[in-house]
């Protein structure tokens, strides 16, 4: 009972947040609505007892991806007028995408309904069952190749991004800390002994 009430409450907030992403005029507000939407989906996953996925969603999307998003959006000087024109211009494309997504979802729900008609909800997990452990076990045994390939692709993306943006400007003064630490007084200061000049 409590479960159902909470589900509908969080789902309603998720829905409103998703609408807010589309309709808010200020891009920073839109990003914050998106953050709220991610949070709400994480909470819905928590209700379904998928705590690992829920927390990773917050950790990765809210904690890292959206922060960088916010970074970019804040730096932009966005013309509100033009953005509003975009809403009507891109509406047909968005509608097509939405229709495709709804179609796919209906397919999945229909397939599930065919498979077992009795249990539409999630089965309760047994006592002492750890979602994280189960995921880790399957990820590192059955799907280890796919997992490793994904890791390599991500590494490739990191290296590519760094190489694309790293450029050495000529004449740039850079600090080399190991050189600084390794320096000795002899290289820097020369002590000269000389007699005092007599000024007579």
């Amino acid at each position: 009972m409590l479960h159902t009430i909470l589900f509908y409450l969080f789902a309603a907030v998720l829905f409103i947040a998703a609408l807010g992403v589309i309709f808010s005029r200020n891009p920073v507000h839109a990003v914050m609505f998106l953050v709220l939407a991610f949070f709400q989906s994480a909470v819905l996953w928590l209700l379904a007892e998928a705590e690992f996925l829920a927390i990773v969603l917050v950790l990765v999307y809210v904690g890292a991806v959206m922060v960088l998003f916010l970074f970019v959006v804040m730096m932009l000087d966005i013309n509100v007028e033009r953005v509003q024109g975009g809403l009507t211009r891109y509406a047909p494309l968005g509608l097509v995408v939405a229709v495709v997504m709804v179609f796919e979802l209906v397919q999945i729900i229909w397939l599930r309904g065919q498979a077992n008609t009795e249990t539409l909800g999630f089965a309760a997990t047994p006592e002492g069952y750890s979602n994280t452990k189960a995921l880790g076990a399957i990820l590192y045994t059955e799907h280890v190749y796919a997992f490793e390939i994904a890791a390599v692709i991500l590494l490739l993306a990191i290296i590519a991004a760094i190489t694309l943006t790293m450029r050495r400007r000529p004449g740039l003064k850079q600090q080399n800390i190991s050189n600084q630490v390794a320096v000795s007084a002899k290289d820097r200061v020369r002590v000269v002994k000389m007699d005092a000049e007599s000024n007579s």
């Binding site: 690992f52 927390i55 990773v56 917050v58 950790l59 809210v62 890292a64 804040m74 994280t132 452990k133």
Partner: peptide, 20 residues
């Protein structure tokens, strides 16, 4: 069960206050 992940997730959320 995922207490450590929860800690990591929430400490990373704290940055929003500063940015906003």
């Amino acid at each position: 069960n995922a207490g450590l992940l929860y800690v990591l997730a929430l400490t990373s959320v704290g940055v929003y206050g500063v940015i906003l």
